[in-house]
């Protein structure tokens, strides 16, 4: 796992994604502050900081890069030559990228809180961090980032074509989950993005499961992807 973290740091990809994620947070919160009415509502602070959960799009892509990126650059050969027990390689990546995803969440949390505080202060509203709801959203947002990084590792190990994996993941989030949601009725709140939204308390969520159930369900998705990733990776020819 330390090798995986070192590998991550040795290229610029992770820093570019981290920077882009902060821009997304700052842009999203600023948009809310510029357009939003009733900024004195106690819920506006929570709405604003919930933007940190959207960074999970970036941690998902980062996770996909863990395995599919190694296939793209054919460095997967070296990884498997050094550790022929491939399950260990996949599990090390899973651990390293989950930790990194949580790290993205924590950095995003700081950016979201700072951006929100600056806007509210500039407009003369108080910043009240004493409510439980704020902290549930903050912690939920961080966990969403970690879970999507783990799911990304699984997706990238299943679809080793990097472009294909990223396209499939983004298409799911942007389009397919919405279509599936209309087809499956009540289960729609248990699809990955819906679960992340519930975990993070996104303002778009109206009737999701309680936060703790959303967290567990998202962890179950990550585990299912991990199992599938290990099973396929151990059998696949690397040519």
């Amino acid at each position: 796992m330390t090798v995986e973290l070192f590998k991550l740091r040795s290229t610029r990809t992770v820093w570019i994604l981290l920077g882009a994620a902060q821009l997304l947070i700052i842009g999203g919160i600023s948009g809310l502050m510029l357009n939003g009415s009733n900024l004195n509502s106690p819920d506006v602070l929570r709405k604003a900081v919930s933007h940190l959960g959207l960074v999970s799009l970036f941690t998902l892509v980062l996770g996909i890069l863990a395995v599919a990126g190694e296939y793209r650059h054919r460095t997967i050969t070296d990884a498997y030559l050094a550790e022929p027990r491939r399950a260990r390689v996949i599990l090390a990546k899973l651990a390293a990228y989950t930790v990194t995803g949580l790290g993205f969440g924590v950095v995003g949390l700081i950016t979201a809180l700072a951006t929100t505080a600056i806007w509210l202060a500039a407009k003369g509203y108080p910043v009240d961090l004493s409510t439980v709801d704020i902290w549930r959203t903050l912690v939920g947002g961080v966990l969403w980032n970690g879970a999507f990084a783990a799911i990304g590792v699984g997706v990238g190990a299943l679809i080793t074509n990097l472009i294909g994996a990223v396209a499939a993941a983004l298409a799911w989030l942007a389009l397919i989950e919405g279509i599936v949601a209309q087809l499956v009725g009540g289960i729609k709140n248990w699809l990955p993005f819906a679960l992340g939204s519930a975990l993070d308390g996104l303002p778009t969520v109206t009737d999701g499961p309680p936060q703790w159930q959303a967290g567990l369900a998202l962890a179950a998705y990550a585990a299912a992807f991990a199992i599938a990733a290990v099973l396929t990776s151990t059998r696949r020819d690397v040519g």
Partner: peptide
């Protein structure tokens, strides 16, 4: 395995954004 067998399979197995030294440092740890 890597202390028993050294293998060179193809010239393309490198991340283009990583330095040669970092590439080897990763493999040294592995």
């Amino acid at each position: 395995p890597r202390r028993v067998v050294g293998a060179v399979l193809e010239a393309t197995g490198f991340h283009p954004g990583r330095t040669g030294r970092d590439h080897l440092r990763i493999l040294a740890r592995r």
